[in-house]
Amino acid sequence: MNEVVPSLTMVRRIKAPPAAVFEAWTRPEILARWWGPHHTMVLSAEIDAQVGGSFRVTLVEDTGARHTVSGTYAEVVPGERLVFSWAWEATAELVSRVTVTFRPVPEGTEVTLVHDRFANEGTATRHRRGWTESFERLVAEFEKAA
Rank of each mutant, 00 (worst) to 15 (best):
Y73V: 04
Y73M: 09
E29Y: 02
V111M: 14
V51G: 11
V98Q: 02
S85W: 02
V69L: 09
A119K: 03
R103S: 07
H38S: 12
D48Y: 08
T40I: 02
S96C: 13
T91I: 10
V114Y: 05
T112N: 03
L43T: 03
F84E: 02
W25A: 08
A92M: 03
D48P: 08
R117W: 00
A24N: 13
E75A: 10
T40K: 00
V60H: 10
L59I: 01
R81P: 04
R56K: 14
D62M: 06
V114N: 12
E89M: 09
V42D: 15
L82S: 03
I47P: 08
T112I: 01
W35L: 13
P17H: 00
T101Q: 00
E80T: 07
R27M: 05
G71W: 05
A65K: 11
H115V: 10
P37K: 00
V100Q: 05
G52I: 09
S54Y: 01
A65G: 06
T109S: 14
S96V: 10
W34Q: 12
V98W: 02
V60M: 12
P78D: 14
H38K: 15
T68G: 11
F55D: 04
E29K: 03
V51N: 06
E46Q: 15
R97A: 06
E75T: 09
T112D: 07
D62P: 01
E107D: 12
A92G: 04
A87E: 12
G79C: 15
M41T: 12
S54T: 06
F22N: 12
Y73E: 05
E89I: 02
P28A: 09
R97L: 12
R81F: 07
E110K: 02
G108A: 04
R117P: 00
V105W: 01
E89G: 05
A119Q: 04
V95Y: 03
E89S: 14
V57L: 08
R103N: 05
V83P: 07
A74L: 09
F102V: 09
E23S: 05
A65F: 08
L59Q: 13
A20G: 06
T58W: 08
F118T: 07
D48Q: 13
G53A: 15
T63L: 08
D48I: 08
R56E: 15
G108Y: 03
R66V: 11
T72L: 14
A87S: 15
S44W: 04
P106F: 11
I30Y: 01
A92Y: 01
A45S: 15
G36T: 02
V105T: 07
S44N: 14
W34V: 10
S85V: 03
F102T: 10
W88Q: 05
G71L: 04
G64T: 09
R27F: 04
V69T: 12
M41A: 14
A20H: 06
L31V: 03
T68C: 13
S70T: 11
L43G: 06
W86N: 09
L94F: 13
T91C: 11
H67K: 01
P78H: 11
E46L: 13
